[in-house]
Design a protein around this nucleic acid. Structure first.
Lengths: 136, 136
DNA sequence: GTGTAAATCGTAATCATTATTAATTAGAAA
DNA sequence: TTTCTAATTAATAATGATTACGATTTACAC
C-alpha cells in the first residue's frame, strides 16, 4: 500500500484530505515496522505540537477499517503498519529487537483441510517472533 | 493440568497453600474457557468480598510462570486458562460466542522447514477464531 | 467567499494492569 | 502448641493505553 492508493481509498469513502492524515500515512510508508499510537504522536508532535491522541487513534481506526493499515497486538499494546502490497494472503515474522518484519508465504489454514468440520471459522492469527539475521 | 498437579508444582517451588490460590485454581479446573482477571474477581468476591486485584494478578503471573496456566490476548485483554493436558504441542480454536476452545493438533512451524534460515525463532502464535458447532 | 459537516484540539474519563504499604497468614522451628 | 518469619494478602493509589466530549478549526462543495 502506498500513499496514492491510500488517498484514493480515503477519497472514495468521503474522507477529507488533512495534513495530519497525510503525515500519519507518510510515517507508515517510510517505516516497515509496526508502530504504536505513542510512536506516531512522539514524531508528529515535532511538526504539530498540538497533535492529540484523539486524532491519532481516530485516524488509525479509520485506516484499519478501510484496509489501509493492518493491526496486531504486541506485549499488550496495539501496533500498526501499512497493509502489505502482496496480493496473496500471508503472515509475518516479527523481529523483537528491531521490529522489522518478514513475510511468511505459508498459511496454516491451508493445511487444516477438514480438521474443523461444523466449525465456522471467522478469523485466524499466525505470527512468528524472534530475531532477524541482522539482530542475531 | 489438574488441581493435584498444580499444587505439586507450587509446593515444589516453595509456594504456600492458601485458600485464595486454591479457589483460583478450582475456577480454572471447572472452566475450559479463557478467563480474564475481572472474570475471576467477580466470582471470587462472592466468597471473599475483600479479594483484591493484586492477589488475582500476582497469582496469575505465578501460575503462568510455572506453566500451570496458559495465557493469550483477546480483544485487548489478557485471558487465562488451565494448561492443556495434551502432551504434544498444539494450538487452539476459540469460539467467539461461548469461549470454548478446541485443540488443533497441527502446528504451522512444522511446515515452515527452512523458510527462515538465519532467523532466530523464539516464539510463535497460531489461533483460530469463529463459532463452535453449538453456537453456529 | 459562505455554509456545513468533518476533523481536530485540549482535556478529562475510563479501563486494565501494576505498585505500595501495612496487616494477615502459612508453615517451619522451637 | 506456641512463636517466629517470610510469604501472602488487602486496601488503595499510581500508571499507561485507550476512549470520550465539548469547543474550535478546517476542508471543500456550492
Amino acid at each position: 500500500m502506498n500513499l496514492t492508493n491510500a488517498w484514493k481509498i480515503l477519497k472514495d469513502n468521503g474522507f477529507k484530505e488533512t495534513s495530519k492524515r497525510n503525515q500519519i500515512l507518510e510515517l507508515f510508508t517510510n517505516d516497515e515496522r509496526y508502530l504504536t499510537a505513542r510512536d506516531l504522536l512522539d514524531v508528529m508532535q515535532k511538526d504539530y505540537p498540538s497533535m492529540s491522541y484523539d486524532t491519532v487513534y481516530r485516524n488509525l481506526a479509520t485506516f484499519v477499517s478501510l484496509g489501509i493499515l493492518e493491526e496486531t497486538e504486541l506485549s499488550g499494546e496495539r501496533h500498526f503498519r501499512m497493509q502489505c502490497e502482496s496480493d496473496h494472503h500471508h503472515h509475518h515474522f516479527i523481529c523483537m529487537d528491531c521490529g522489522k518484519i518478514k513475510e511468511i508465504p505459508i498459511c496454516p489454514m491451508d493445511m487444516l483441510g477438514a480438521a474443523l468440520p461444523a466449525y465456522e471459522i471467522a478469523n485466524h492469527k499466525f505470527e512468528i517472533y524472534g530475531k532477524c539475521p541482522e539482530c542475531k
